[in-house]
Amino acid sequence: MIKSDISNYVISSRIRLARNLAKYPFPNKMGFEDGLRVIKEVSEPLEKYVDGKLIMLKDLEPIEIKAFTEKHLISNALAENIKTGGVVINKDSTLSVMINEEDHVRIQVIKRSLDLESAYELADKVDDLISENSEVAFDIHLGYLTGCPTNLGTAMRASVMMFLPALTINRTINNVIFSSSKDALALRGVFGEGTQAEGYMYQLSNQYSLGLSEKEIINSVKNQIYKVAEAEEIARDTLLNKNRVELTDMIMRAWGILINAYKIDTAEFMQNISLIKLGAALGILKIKNSALDEIIIACRPANLALRSGKKLDAIERDIYRAEFLKDVLPKMA
């Protein structure tokens, strides 16, 4: 059992449901006209229900599309479908319904901290709405039929983003990444390549979507989350007991860089903000980790460019990022 709140280890929870309309071929085999029909059929009842407008990708600037992917509101697969891709997003951006992604419909709900249940509750309601209005491709044995067989059945992916600095620093998280294809769960670094997770962030999600109920999937992911959180908690205690002085110094230096730099690139920013997040998690800095998560997204290249309101080259962007940090960070401490 963990002693502190689970939100010290979990950033966000996400539920994704994939659905296809029975009367159209799947997006990879669908023509332009059918694509627009799917958009219309799915988005019209949805817009009323979620009080959000349909956004067509063809009406967006490339930088706006990139900014949506940085915010996880759309997937890379949707971002590639400029012609017929669309998305309906609700007011508080917790729900996004992607249309003509790998499947006709991808319902995605993201909630703060560990809250797969309420994320599923909302996704489930949206799913009901869609199947009231359209015939959804479904087979009694295989469940919801999806473009890729890895998503069959519940067609659900329950993912939790975890913040695991101590296990990363201990280098004991590396092991988790070696999961074989028969494992029921996958844990991967969110930013960065391979084993070196930038920002100490990892994504844990279910592997199987067929053969388990939605509830079983959510429960198994949750169980694993608590086990990993427990290991992280022990690792943080050890880290703090052994290296308090060095750690505090590292974190304060990172703070110094972030509020004093004249220019800072994505990699250096991520490295230092991760230390700030670690400081916040260990109680060395009195800052809310959720506020830092928002700054991380705001500092990704496309979101930064949008905020500046003008076209920036790489150097200008790094200067602008430093200016932005100088403005927002001191207000938080």
């Binding site: 959804v136 044995h141 069959l152 519940t154 659900m156 199987y208 979507s209 067929l210 388990l212």
Partner: peptide
């Protein structure tokens, strides 16, 4: 997949 029989939700 874990199994070949769907046991979750249906439309």
């Amino acid at each position: 997949q874990k199994d070949n029989i769907h046991t979750g939700k249906g439309p």
